[in-house]
Write a protein that binds this DNA or RNA. Structure first.
Length: 292
DNA sequence: TCTTGTTTAATATATT
DNA sequence: AATATATTAAACAAGA
């Protein structure tokens, strides 16, 4: 109670590690990649706690970006002026928080670095993402300023309908309300279909009315995503998120359950019946592994 | 010079 | 308690 005045609830430290915060930021962007400054912005916009001590946590964040293999750096294109590179999630990092805790991953994601011969470096992934982004951008440009049929384009090109990267912000949010436990993605499996193809139309702005004490909702969000627009009312699986979040300002009493379910100890279910299948994309076999 | 990245080392905290 | 992961600090390089 050092500060009894305003900012009562929301300036508590969010129960998320820098890794998860960063992943959220990245996932929330249309292109699934962000420059450092935008990651900062995302976090500060939504979590008042991080509007202070910026020196400290931003250093930590940077450390995390370069230290953890789950983040990959994507060089800027000449047509994308600005500072620094983009940061994205490694395509095969899978669901790093399937244990239900966003404070700690069950395992560290590491890319095996055998500078052998065909090291299929993250550069592949980077290139791929970059390419996707470009595609998307030009497609956007082509449609004029308010992308009407974008969804069609999306469906055609990318996802088999409703696949969402485990890190999609809606998924994170969704789990807050109900731990599905299903969604059996093993980091070990090469999940070629897991390429985080940008599917922004259903992703952007979904973090609006989340009833999190530490998370800022406020009417306007996505100052960072110029491309956001209509149809942003729908979260994962095409379900409208509004109802899920009780209109908006209603906050749950609890500060957020972060305890991993004891039962959810992934008994290595081999149910590949996940919604990721028929994606025949040029998945450059990326050798990665969850290091113990 | 400030921002962006890398890296090493020491602590701190969660999980088992 | 031991171990794995996360946080923090700090030195340093490269670029804009």
């Amino acid at each position: 109670m050092p500060r009894p005045g305003r900012n009562t609830y929301s300036d508590q430290k969010p129960p998320y590690s820098y890794i998860s915060l960063t992943a959220m930021a990245i996932q929330s962007s249309p292109e699934k990649m962000l420059p450092l400054s935008e990651i900062y912005k995302f976090i500060m916009d939504r979590f008042p706690y991080y509007r202070e001590n910026t020196q400290r946590w931003q250093n930590s964040l940077r450390h995390n970006l370069s230290f953890n293999d789950c983040f990959i750096k994507i060089p800027r294109r000449p047509d994308q002026p600005g500072k620094g590179s983009f940061w994205a999630l490694h395509p095969s990092c899978g669901d790093m928080f399937e244990n239900g805790s966003f404070l700690r991953r069950r395992k560290r994601f590491k890319v095996v670095k055998s500078d052998h011969l065909a090291p299929s470096k993250p550069a592949d992934a980077a290139q791929y993402l970059q390419q996707q982004a470009k595609l998307r951008l030009s497609a956007l440009a082509a449609t004029g300023t308010h992308l009407p049929q974008m969804s069609t384009y999306n469906l055609g090109v990318s996802q088999p309908s409703s696949f969402k990267h485990p890190f999609a912000i809606e998924n994170i949010i969704a789990r807050e309300y109900k731990m599905p436990g299903g969604l059996a993605f093993s980091t070990m499996q090469p999940m070629p279909a897991a390429y985080p193809l940008p599917n922004q139309l259903t992703t952007v702005g979904s973090s609006i009315g989340t009833g999190w004490p530490h998370m800022y909702s406020s009417g306007m969000i996505d100052t960072a995503t110029p491309i956001s627009m209509a149809s942003s009312e729908y979260g994962a699986y095409g379900v409208p998120i509004k109802p899920l979040c009780h209109g908006g300002q209603t906050l749950p009493a609890i500060p957020v359950p972060i305890k991993p379910t004891p039962a959810a100890t992934a008994t290595s279910q081999s149910s590949p019946a996940t919604p990721s299948e028929t994606l025949t994309s040029p998945a450059p076999a990326l050798h990665s592994v969850a290091v113990h």
